[in-house]
Amino acid sequence: MSASLPDTPSMPQRLQLSLAPDWDTIKATWDPCQTYLAEQGLDPDTAYALGMVAQELLENGVKYGGFSPGRDRILLAIDALCDPLLIEVRTPLGEEAGRLEELDAMVQWIRGYQSPFEAFVERLKQISTRPQVSTQSGLGLVRVAYEGQCLLDFYVDEKDVLAMSAVHPNPSAQSREG
């Protein structure tokens, strides 16, 4: 894991991590994310929820990514000073057919619910009656919307890099305005 906090030491604005696409590396980002979010003045509950969001997006980055020499990193960026607060994960897009359509369908499915709680509960019900537990349950993205209280989006750039983002109203910015 390589990290950069490119701004002045007294006021880091953006956390950026370049990560090997493996599970242990992803898990190890929890502490730096929590440290960064706490330094930006977020309360522990919000920092925890956003740390969960980063973890779930990174897990999806591994699942949806296609890695090869020169295209073997996942990038995590968190900007906790902008409003809304932004968490973005960028991963080289895999060539497996249909994955992007799956992701699009999941994001649209979540947006189809008036409340993320309803979407989360519906997903739990679907999972409960499946014959087997699947790692492709889609629950992580629904959790980003429900527990993380984030809006989800994604796009693919001209270099076939998939960028998944979650935005959250920034409590620090709102308290500054208030």
Partner: peptide
Amino acid sequence: EYLNSATVAVLVHFLH
């Protein structure tokens, strides 16, 4: 301290 969504899915499935 933390459950990822894959673990939540396991719990829900087990509950059923």
